[in-house]
C-alpha cells in the first residue's frame, strides 16, 4: 500500500554481534512516512537490539541504516548531531534524568538544540506535558511519579523537538491494562496530530494490534514476517502463531549438540 512513497527508515542487511555472538542476522526493513511500525517478538528475538542500532547507539558489523535519507553508519558526529534533532526516543524505563524536575527533563532537548529564551522553552515544555496529560506536573521530580506518568513524561521529552521519527521501547511494560491502553491512544493521537513516523518495540499483542499500521515479527535475529495486522493474524507461520497464541516453543533437540553442551566438549 505504501510502495509509492519513499521510506523514511530503510535498513539493509543489518548484521550485528554482541561479542562473538551474532544477534541480528541480516535484517532488512522499510518504514514509510506517517506510519506506525510495531516491531514484535519474544524475549531474545533481537528486537531491543534492533532498536538500539536504529538509534545509532552502536556500530553494526555490516549493513546500512538510513534514517530520513542519511545512512547513520556513515555519518560523522556533527551530521549525527544534526539528525538527532529530528529523532525522539522514549526508553523502556523512561530514563528520565533523576536529578532534574519533570519540566527540566522536557526542556533539556530544547535548551541543547535551540537558542530560544527561557520563557519560551518553559511554555513549550508545558505544552508537551499538556499533550501527554501531565499538565501541572512540571515541578515534580521523576521519583515522585507513578510508572504510567514516567512513561508519559518520557514521551513528552521525546517529542519536545517535534521530531519526524519517534521510537518507543516497550510502552506497556510494567503498566496496568488501563494505563497501557491510554498510552496506546496517546501514540495514535500523536501520529495524527503531529504526523510523526513511529516505531514501537513491544511484546504486548493487544497493544501491537491496536496501534500498528504494519507489524514486523522478529525471531532469533531474523525477520519472520512484515505485514498488516490482518496479515500477521492470518499468517500460517508456526512461530508467528506460537507468539499469537502464547504457545511454548517446541524446539527439536539435536542430541549430539545437547551432549556436547553438557559435557562442555
Amino acid at each position: 500500500m505504501n510502495t509509492d512513497r519513499e521510506p523514511v527508515i530503510r535498513v539493509r542487511d543489518l548484521v550485528t554481534h554482541y561479542g562473538e555472538r551474532q544477534i541480528l542476522k541480516g535484517v532488512s526493513l522499510d518504514v514509510y512516512s506517517g506510519e506506525i511500525m510495531v516491531i514484535m517478538g519474544g524475549s531474545g528475538s533481537g528486537k531491543s537490539t534492533f532498536l538500539r542500532f536504529l538509534l545509532g547507539l552502536h556500530v553494526p558489523t555490516s549493513g546500512s541504516i538510513e534514517l530520513l535519507g542519511q545512512d547513520i553508519t556513515q555519518l560523522d558526529s556533527q551530521e549525527m548531531y544534526a539528525l538527532r534533532k529530528k529523532m525522539g526516543v522514549s526508553f523502556q524505563g523512561g530514563a528520565l534524568f533523576n536529578s532534574m524536575t519533570v519540566g527540566e527533563n522536557v526542556q533539556l532537548p530544547l535548551r541543547e538544540h535551540t537558542d530560544l529564551d527561557d520563557a519560551t522553552i518553559e511554555i513549550m515544555s508545558r505544552l508537551k506535558l499538556e499533550l501527554v496529560n501531565l499538565g501541572g506536573f512540571d515541578k515534580l521530580m521523576p521519583a515522585q511519579l507513578s510508572g504510567g506518568m514516567v512513561k508519559r513524561a518520557a514521551l513528552a521529552r521525546a517529542i519536545a523537538m517535534d521530531p519526524r521519527l519517534l521510537f518507543f521501547d516497550e510502552p506497556s511494560a510494567g503498566l496496568d491494562p488501563v494505563v497501557s491502553a491510554e498510552l496506546d491512544e496517546l501514540i495514535l493521537k500523536l501520529r495524527d496530530a503531529l504526523n510523526m513516523t513511529i516505531v514501537v518495540v513491544t511484546h504486548e499483542l493487544d497493544s501491537a494490534f491496536k496501534i500498528a499500521d504494519r507489524i514486523t515479527v522478529l525471531d532469533q535475529g531474523d525477520i519472520l514476517l512484515v505485514g498488516t495486522v490482518e496479515e500477521v493474524r492470518n499468517s500460517d507461520n508456526s512461530r508467528v502463531q506460537d507468539l499469537l497464541n502464547r504457545r511454548p516453543r517446541d524446539e527439536t533437540i539435536d542430541p549430539d549438540a545437547y551432549m556436547a553442551r553438557l559435557t562442555n566438549a
Binding site: 528520565l96 534524568f97 532537548p109
Partner: peptide, 20 residues
C-alpha cells in the same frame, strides 16, 4: 555513583539520543 546510576537507568543512552 552518579554516572553509574545513569548508565543503569539508561539515562546515558537518553543523553546520547538527545544529542548530548
Amino acid at each position: 555513583a552518579r554516572i553509574g546510576t545513569m548508565v543503569v537507568n539508561q539515562e546515558i543512552d537518553a543523553l546520547r539520543v538527545i544529542g548530548i
